[in-house]
């Protein structure tokens, strides 16, 4: 009888369910994507640059390291064992790649953390929170849209990085390397980024007033990074729990062609718990206008 009314009701029901679930809001999502376009370009270019620059040095590295391998042969087995790492693994292309990759992950983590920390604090800082909050969009959907848009941007950055690193790898590697392992190593960039993104979102919804997004996110990322570096020097396995940078152990991946299930679960837990907590805190939070 009244198709318009029925349609309207259907739309209302659909909208309500979406809101209840805190589903993404298309407008906020698209707006966030647009506002991150420049940052996407800058980050993609920096990641490509770092990958291409460092990978282009592999041939020189290979030459030097092979010479050293011969020197190493002259030492007793015990000494070689004390070294902990087999030289063969390091000289191989994937060994070198995983060294280079650790810096790429550092950059990726900074990018992800920036997006996470900015999610809510940006609106508060720029005094746009009261504008956004008066829109008929639930807080849950705002947060969802923001997280999803950050994820999309990170995915694009990673895809661009992966392609350029792969082309570069193909052209510098001295011997054929396993493409599957290359992919498995590279994709941990995304995993680490998701962990940092969720920690960032949590910080953003808890910390009342973020003075400077850059300072906060860099402080946190570098703290974890330096813990990771100390861990590498000391070879202390317990310290691995303290920093997401060590959750995806590249030498483990290379050896077993799989991820360490233990740390994968921990990562998943961190992501789920911090995202869930962000929703809880953000829903209840007082947001001051002006």
């Amino acid at each position: 009888m009244f198709p318009e009314i029925q349609l309207y009701q259907a739309a209302e029901v659909a909208e309500n369910t979406l809101h209840l679930k805190g589903g993404a809001n298309m407008n906020v999502f698209l707006y966030e994507l647009r506002s991150k376009a420049k940052s996407l370009a800058v980050w993609s270019i920096s990641l490509i640059f770092v990958a291409v620059f460092l990978l282009s040095m592999y041939p020189t590295f290979y030459k030097n390291a092979s010479l050293f391998k011969d020197v190493l042969e002259g030492y007793p087995v015990a000494v070689r064992k004390a070294f902990g790492i087999s030289m063969d693994d390091i000289i191989k292309f994937l060994g070198y790649y995983s060294y280079v990759f650790s810096y790429v992950v550092l950059l990726g983590a900074i990018q992800a953390m920036n997006y996470g920390v900015a999610a809510i604090s940006k609106e508060v800082k720029l005094k746009t929170a009261d504008f956004l909050m008066t829109k008929p969009i639930k807080r849950g959907s705002i947060l969802t849209s923001k997280i999803l848009s950050s994820l999309v941007i990170l995915l694009i950055t990673d895809a661009v990085y992966f392609l350029s690193a792969f082309i570069m790898a193909k052209s510098v590697a001295k011997e054929p390397f396993s493409i599957k392992l290359f992919f498995m190593i590279s994709v941990t960039l995304l995993f680490v980024e998701i962990i940092f993104l969720s920690i960032g979102v949590l910080l953003s919804s808890v910390v009342r007033k973020v003075k400077s997004t850059t300072s906060l996110s860099l402080g946190v990322v570098f703290a974890f990074y330096i813990i990771g570096m100390i861990q590498a020097i000391l070879n202390d396995d317990n310290m691995k729990y303290l920093t997401p940078f060590k959750y995806f152990d590249l030498s483990y991946i290379m050896k077993n062609s799989s991820y360490d299930i233990h740390f994968s679960i921990i990562s998943l837990l961190i992501v789920v718990v911090s995202i869930a907590l962000s929703y809880v805190f953000f829903q209840k939070r007082d947001i001051y206008a002006m």
Binding site: T60, N64, A65, L67, F68, Y75, F83, I90, M229, I233
Partner: peptide, 22 residues
């Protein structure tokens, strides 16, 4: 853990490897 022979070995490493080991 860092005995004399280990130091000796590290000193013969090319710079690239040294920086990788930290």
């Amino acid at each position: 853990i860092s005995g004399q022979s280990l130091n000796d070995m590290i000193s013969k490493m090319p710079d690239a490897l040294k920086s990788m080991f930290g």
